[in-house]
């Protein structure tokens, strides 16, 4: 039996939280070595719930560190983040997450 797609869930809290500046955004394409992300508002008592779907095993701790850093850097709070990953490196993950937020600032990428 082939390995199955893995689903990781993280509950994180920023040190100095602030609300997600939109109720929904989608960004990215699940190309090889790339990922897409949905960020949406969800009342979680200031926490951020992140769900990662990835074919890669053995990098759970790396995911946690990358996501913790992102949540702390941006102060994101009360948000649900879903990531579909296809072997993206930690650098690409960080880049895409920040690009997604930049898209909100520019008023794009809010796909229904």
């Amino acid at each position: 039996m082939a390995k199955k797609l893995r689903e990781l869930t993280f509950e994180l809290k920023a040190e100095s939280p602030s609300a997600l500046p939109t109720d929904f955004l989608h960004y990215g394409v699940v190309g090889s070595g790339d990922m897409e992300v949905i960020m949406e508002h969800q009342e979680l008592a200031g926490a951020v719930r992140i769900i990662v779907r990835t074919p890669v095993a053995g990098f759970d701790e790396v995911w946690r560190r990358v996501l913790e850093r992102f949540v702390n850097q941006t102060g994101m709070a009360d948000a649900r983040i879903e990531i579909n990953d296809n072997n993206a490196t930690p650098v690409v993950v960080t880049l895409r997450l920040h690009q997604a937020l930049a898209e909100i600032a520019e008023g794009g990428a809010r796909h229904v």
């Binding site: 082939a2 797609l5 074919p55 579909n84 990953d85 796909h111 229904v112």
Partner: peptide, 28 residues
């Protein structure tokens, strides 16, 4: 342009996860 059945509907493939393959919210 108004997208229908877009990423927000999360209509990803039911088959790829069983094979350990990455999925996409709009199934490409």
């Amino acid at each position: 342009f108004t997208e229908l059945a877009g990423p927000r509907c999360r209509l990803s493939s039911p088959h790829l996860p069983l094979l350990g393959e990455a999925v996409e919210f709009d199934d490409g």
